[in-house]
Design a protein around this nucleic acid. Structure first.
Lengths: 367, 367
DNA sequence: CTGAAAGCGCTTACAG
DNA sequence: CTGAAAGCGCTTACAG
């Protein structure tokens, strides 16, 4: 019983039934321009009776606004993006906007394709977790075309776009400071630290200063916080404890964690520097039959809210808030705000419930 | 440096530069109708030189197709929907489609609003996890308007729409059969079992037959599997072991789980009947310092892939596949397939790694 | 405040 | 195979 095209109720039939011009019907139904109370009532009544539904495509074609936000996440299946998208969708809904979601899988090429599709669909603005941080011509093109871009989680060099990020360095520093205060001296860090983007690990660790840390992926910033804490405590870092997984994969993180736990001179604490990595690290610990925090203290960045119930200390990123902030920025820009790019930095919170124990056999002033 | 409206490259400028009519330019660029090799080359060249980007809004207005799928999830933040949406987005991308994501939070009213917005945006089809299973007039309206609806995870009574679901009853039965085979006789089930939708629990448990189980929420179907297994084994069920959480909340499930674990005559095994519930149940177990599976066997429905590494037996729903199947169905319908409604039922898989122990102090033929 | 006309950027019959 | 004209469903100046 599909409705034939000709059956569709348009503003023309509403205008006819109300005995007004389509212009007037449009003014009433679209909520723009002026109209008298009387005609307004007549048009509304006619629209009601016909069960009129506006076609937003037609409006969008004229106004150039579709009331749609384009989102390019790395991977919506990842709970980080799932939660951010929830925040975005909440804000969008409140303003009558929709959100089109795409995944880049951290590939610049896919990101480019996604942006292209979203541009053709005439989205009003973009929220992107950029794949490349050393410049992104296709995102610059978007901005040049007059559509706002808000970066989330990361910052691209030379892009005049708003951003919403977390102070990863401070949060990581705080975690490691606590582990050090509990007496730990061998703290392994398991993190993504992708090589292609990140550059050389030894150079990074060696350099006292890292000028461009803002344009590093979050895992590098967290490594920096890890190093900061050691430096401040005067504890030297064994390079063998810095483990680079190279991809956002729990399985890969599991292998890396097993390796560091099975090696000689085992660390007494682990800092899992990314949400997905945490999962793999926990698998490794479980597989070895170690107990947290008795055998090993564990601090995880991001995610699973129940981890803290198992003696795991968790740093929780305000991911939903990041989505909300990003969406609010986009909407402000769409609404005409053309102030200089804003860079919102949110703080991650150490969950209260997790516990850090002193290293085995050592009794220090715990926290 | 925002591009002024007048700067926008349309098919008109491309046609001019190529020295052809807009109709011909449209035929070449849109890939429809006939055109000679020579003109095709000229138009392509002109489009390239001008960096022409089609406006899909205009095309959609004429063709009535937007190449967009509307998705109404209960909550994209929930990993179930996040994974399903990933599957949907993958299929959509492969066909040049986009996906607009909305959340209903299990509210019929929100679902109605979301559907309304998506209709106005002229999406070609819907994938919905319906909030109400006893009939849904607004979804029936969508179908009457000629747009396909594919239900995911659940089935609405009287709706002539495709569906993709999981055989929850069989999967739950299988889990409980294993627990029973390991010697467990007191197996608690922690599940959502919302009262408003589900009806009376005692009646449900008492009735030997449940004719309309297809139109129950998944948690009820799983309870049925739990009952099936007991019946088949000739083990009677203590009603006190059936715990209804009433909402998809880890916090609520934690309280319910604590209650059943702290009560007298504690169960020797737990079956957490939903993904979100599993999280709360694990929190409760951790908070009580119990070890799985030594102190207590635990089987969880859905989700977290690392759980099985901690001695927890997991039933994994093929959620990504559900999204893929749903998207493929929608695309087929959009493509003109008007065969009778299809009901795809996928099987959940028991993860291999989890272990079920015999109840404490009992030594039975395990598994 | 209201209406007749033009137009958003494309595609669709219809002639040729 | 190609072009002139009409039109998708709205909104936008422009008169009145």
């Amino acid at each position: 019983m599909a409705t034939k095209r000709s059956d569709r109720i348009t503003i023309i039939q509403v205008a006819e039934r109300a005995g007004v011009s389509t212009a007037t019907a449009g003014r009433v139904l679209g909520g723009y321009g002026y109209s008298s109370d009387e005609l307004r009532a007549r048009v509304r009544k006619a629209a009601d009776e016909l069960d009129y539904r506006p076609n937003r495509l037609a409006r969008g074609l004229i106004t150039g606004k579709t009331q749609t936000i384009g989102v390019v996440a790395a991977d919506i299946e990842n709970s980080f993006y799932a939660r951010a998208v929830r925040g975005i969708a909440d804000v969008a809904r409140g303003s009558g906007f929709g959100a089109i979601i795409t995944n880049s899988d951290e590939s610049v090429e896919r990101e480019r394709e996604a942006v292209q599709l979203l541009m053709e669909k005439q989205v009003d603005g973009f929220i992107v977790s950029p794949a490349a941080l050393d410049g992104s011509p296709h995102l610059a093109d978007v901005i040049a075309s007059g559509r706002p871009v808000v970066q989330i989680d990361r910052l691209t060099r030379g892009l005049a776009a708003d951003s919403v990020t977390v102070d990863n360095r401070a949060a990581a520093r705080e975690c490691v400071v606590r582990l050090l205060a509990a007496g730990h001296r061998r703290i392994a860090i398991i993190a993504e630290l992708e090589s292609a983007v990140g550059g050389d690990l030894a150079t990074f660790v060696g350099s006292a200063e890292e000028p461009d840390v803002a344009f590093r992926h979050p895992s590098w910033q967290r490594l920096l916080g890890y190093l900061d804490a050691h430096r401040a405590a005067g504890v030297s870092v064994d390079p063998a404890l810095i483990r680079r997984v190279g991809e956002y994969s729990a399985a890969a993180a599991r292998e890396v964690s097993l390796d560091v736990l099975q090696g000689k001179n085992r660390p007494t604490a682990l800092f899992a520097g990314d949400g997905t990595m945490s999962t793999g690290t926990m698998q490794a610990i479980a597989a070895m039959g170690l107990r947290v925090p008795d055998d090993l203290s564990l601090v995880c960045f991001d995610d699973l809210d129940w981890m803290s119930w198992s003696g795991i200390t968790t740093v929780v990123q305000p991911v939903h808030d990041m989505g909300v902030a990003a969406a609010e920025l986009v909407l402000a820009r769409v609404g005409g705000d053309d102030s200089p790019p804003q860079h919102v930095v949110l703080q991650a919170q150490l969950a209260e419930r997790g516990s850090i124990a002193a290293p085995r056999g050592i009794d220090t002033d715990s926290r």
